[in-house]
């Protein structure tokens, strides 16, 4: 019999995948009409979040149903490797695209920049696969978080100059922090077990807040 936590994981993943896909869908018309780069990168980010959470659920399903500590212990071996690689790659791309949606006017839009993000995401995924120690995973995520904080700080400073509300940056900051906790939860399943419910509830709340803001502003 499957452990009941699988049902709990299913609901959690379903809510976040649904929120992400609704954000993607609700912004489609605005993007079709304007072809505005900021909207494009924002949409890509939530599409990547949706697919990443799908893979996250798949990995959790395997871990819980087989009682494994790491997806890399799954046999046949390549399924574990591929699913972890895809999950790490997609989740990094989701974070990069959300940051790019804030910074594209400063960084410019070019194929090279897009390729650089894909390259970095592949490198992060390969590091995640190559090193199986908790210290390495934590260090990797701290580096990503440092990069995110740096970019968010620049975007926040620019927004302050325009005297805009800073609520969005708090939401994004929490989204990135809780996303990293979700990644750590997959890489080191026992590490955050005590806080899992809180992490899930806050993560769901953040996606619902973003969806609400999108639906309100997009006129859907």
């Amino acid at each position: 019999m499957l452990p009941p936590q699988i049902g709990f994981e299913l609901i959690y993943s379903f809510v976040i995948i649904a929120c992400s896909l609704l954000v993607y869908h609700a912004t489609r018309e605005m993007y079709d009409l304007s072809k505005y780069n900021g909207i494009k990168f924002f949409r890509y980010s939530f599409l990547f979040f949706a697919v990443a959470y799908f893979f996250r659920y798949f990995i959790q399903f395997v871990l819980l149903s087989l009682g494994l500590n790491s997806i890399l212990d799954f046999s046949p071996n390549f399924i574990g490797w591929v699913s972890l690689f895809v999950f790490l790659y997609l989740s990094s791309m989701a974070v990069f695209y959300l940051l790019y949606s804030l910074m594209w006017k400063k960084w410019g839009d070019s194929k090279l920049k897009n390729l650089l993000f894909h390259f970095l995401a592949v490198v992060i995924a390969l590091i995640g696969l190559s090193f199986r120690g908790a210290e390495m995973y934590l260090l990797l995520n701290m580096i990503i978080l440092g990069f995110v904080l740096f970019v968010l700080f620049i975007a926040y400073k620019d927004s302050k100059k325009k005297k805009k509300d800073s609520g969005l940056f708090i939401i994004y900051l929490l989204l990135f922090i809780f996303w990293i906790l979700n990644v750590i939860d997959i890489l080191l399943p026992s590490f955050l077990q005590l806080f899992q419910l809180i992490i899930y509830l806050i993560s769901i709340s953040l996606f619902i807040v973003i969806l609400y803001k999108v639906l309100r502003k997009s006129g859907n």
């Binding site: 912004t27 605005m30 505005y36 900021g38 909207i39 804030l102 502003k217």
Partner: peptide, 18 residues
């Protein structure tokens, strides 16, 4: 349609700082 939705698009871009 773009003209109809222009205000919404601009408000959305502002809201999410895109």
């Amino acid at each position: 349609k773009f003209l109809e939705r222009y205000r919404t698009i601009i408000e959305f871009i502002d809201e999410f700082d895109l």
